[in-house]
Design a protein around this nucleic acid. Structure first.
Lengths: 197, 197
DNA sequence: TAAAACATGTAACTAGTTACATGATTAG
DNA sequence: CTAATCATGTAACTAGTTACATGTTTTA
């Protein structure tokens, strides 16, 4: 009850509510940018946050759609986020099953290996398209200039830039690997020229 | 009992055992390259894999150290890995609390924001050092040439190259963001010149 | 002399996934 | 007419974390 119930998910929800008041359903959609959480975790967590006064909600009746609870962050919630953002951050390794498969590519013949890498490349290219549309939306919303580092547009802009840069480097890596499979290498491939970007 | 008990962890353990026979303790250390798993999950999982004949073990008595079980992959285990590596891979978003904090940087003053980014940069630079040592070990082990894409050195080499490239791009991003905080930007910073690497 | 490394295991907990449950509207 | 979207919730499960439990040797 009175014990500390704050975890990454609760801070994630509060972080999103900093910028706008949203329903549990919309929070679920938004938090999927950060990591995949199903609604089955969102709703009980919001109920808990509301009990502990980190958020409050109002019922909104809709026509043609079910009623919804629109949540807003409280003063207590804002203070909690400000404390959390400066807490020591553990740099744990993220689980990525693709990396585990890359570790086993030597088991595959050339065609199957290239298929694995090609599919990855295509998935990432699709992600980049979505993100570039998102960045255009942000630019439009703030009239093509970000007034200061204390604007939430700034945070969103630097984050999406990070995600795109990581995707772009992965596409380069995919192409480098496919090149290696197509014999575009000699004994000198170990000088890692791929990394000189 | 007879039901399918295979998950990402079981395939992770089998993938490592493909290259070398190891104890549960050493498997725990190795799998930490991919994601953090404590020994409390490793030991019961290995017992289950052994029951289902994906691995086998021999007891090794040691002087000055506790006895250990050294696990090896079986034929059944190798077949399972070969099937798994081609199974459809869900491209789910990885949980990264740092990204969530970046999303809130506009709440921080310049000094605190730079501290957050600087600490991230330093952590990644340390990771890069460790990985560059690892890549040198791999190069030494295979006498500075990777004979073919069917060698396990190839898999390990392309994987570590991927991790290093991702770390390097994140360092660049950190420096770009710190530059923005130090007013190295005009209205045109939105042209994303950072991404032209 | 305290901590870390080596080595294996279990217990109790929190986090995350999948399925069950309901029900209207809209798009293909 | 079937699936997707909007909308909220619970139940049952698997995955992952932290703590308990034991014991030796080596390093700081």
């Amino acid at each position: 009850m009175g014990r500390n119930c704050m975890n990454t998910l609760t801070f994630g929800l509060l972080a999103i509510l900093l910028n706008q008041s949203l329903s549990g359903y919309d929070l679920m959609l938004k938090i999927n940018t950060f990591w995949n959480i199903p609604h089955s975790r969102i709703y009980p967590t919001l109920a808990k946050l509301e009990q502990e006064n980190y958020v409050s909600y109002i019922m909104i009746e809709q026509k043609g759609k079910p009623d919804k609870k629109v949540y807003s962050i409280t003063e207590k919630g804002i203070i909690a986020v400000k404390e959390w953002i400066l807490m020591p951050l553990d740099s744990s390794v993220k689980k990525d099953e693709f990396h585990l498969r890359v570790y086993c590519t030597h088991l595959l013949d050339k065609e199957r290996a290239i298929k694995l890498i090609k599919e990855r490349e295509e998935n990432i290219l699709k992600k980049i398209e979505v993100r570039k549309k998102r960045i255009e939306e942000i630019k439009t919303q703030c009239d093509n200039k970000i007034e200061s580092t204390s604007s939430s547009y700034f945070s969103r802009y630097i984050l999406i830039s990070k995600l795109i840069s990581e995707d772009e480097i992965e596409v380069k890596w995919c192409r480098w690997v496919m090149g290696l499979y197509n014999n575009e290498w000699g004994v000198n491939f170990l000088d890692m020229s791929f990394l000189e970007f």
